[in-house]
Design a protein around this nucleic acid. Structure first.
Lengths: 121, 121
DNA sequence: GATAGAACCTACCAAAAGGTAAGGGTAAAA
DNA sequence: TTTTACCCTTACCTTTTGGTAGGTTCTATC
């Protein structure tokens, strides 16, 4: 059977998880509702601005639920929606693939970078 | 168990499939070696420049194999490597997820876009 | 009284990614 | 003989994305 006619759903998936930090966010939120500052600490390396952007995108897509506890100073946490859970489930094999092949991939990236530098120098 | 210490492999996976057309390319190549022009037709909407860029990235990453048949006018095709096959396998659930949720996701994107426009206008 | 921490927002800037338009060298088809 | 198709390449430009640095409002703590 020819797959030319059956469009691939990966474009849809990437609409949702496309963004430098979104996969990591999903990963670090899957154990339960997590506060903003805690996500920031766990993800590591994100600026607040970008974190909020990506969190908002995920909330808009109904992947995450934002809960404002209406306290001051603010208390807000984010949790997976049922829809978000299906996404995380679908993401699991890819996550595992990445974990298994981390070394391999980063080694390849380094070697090709070296080749490029050799051509330049 | 706390996942804070076990890094998520999704960042690695996105290094490989990150790029507007890469998932689609992988999808359209999985039935066997495919010629450049055929990939271009199947993917649809890519410029030659970008297609070649992404194909080269995938070749560098050892996901695809480029075979030059040394004819003129040129005959070149691209096929999945064994490594690439493992990636496609890991990608399958996400692909299915996207297919199942295509309507839902595009509906959400449209509604939030409408909200934004309403705020502007 | 100064400071730190919570969860953001805003203006501005840099880098990366993608897109457009043109060309190139060959051979077969029209 | 002009056109078409093949698989690219290059120069240039626009869009998207991400990052920096500052500010805000409030409370609890030192």
């Amino acid at each position: 059977m020819d797959r030319t006619e059956t469009p691939c759903g990966l474009d849809v998936a990437l609409l949702v998880i496309g963004g430098k930090w979104k996969p990591l966010i999903l990963f670090h939120v899957q154990d339960g509702p997590t506060r903003f500052s805690e996500i920031r600490r766990r993800v590591g390396g994100v600026s607040e601005k970008v974190l909020i952007q990506q969190l908002r995108d995920l909330v808009e897509m109904n992947v995450l639920l934002r809960r404002d506890h209406h306290r001051v100073p603010p208390v807000v946490d984010y949790a997976l929606t049922p829809f978000g859970e299906t996404l995380v489930t679908a993401l699991a094999p890819l996550c595992e693939w990445g974990t298994v092949n981390r070394e391999r991939v980063s080694a390849m990236r380094e070697s090709t970078a070296m080749e490029r530098n050799a051509l330049v120098g």
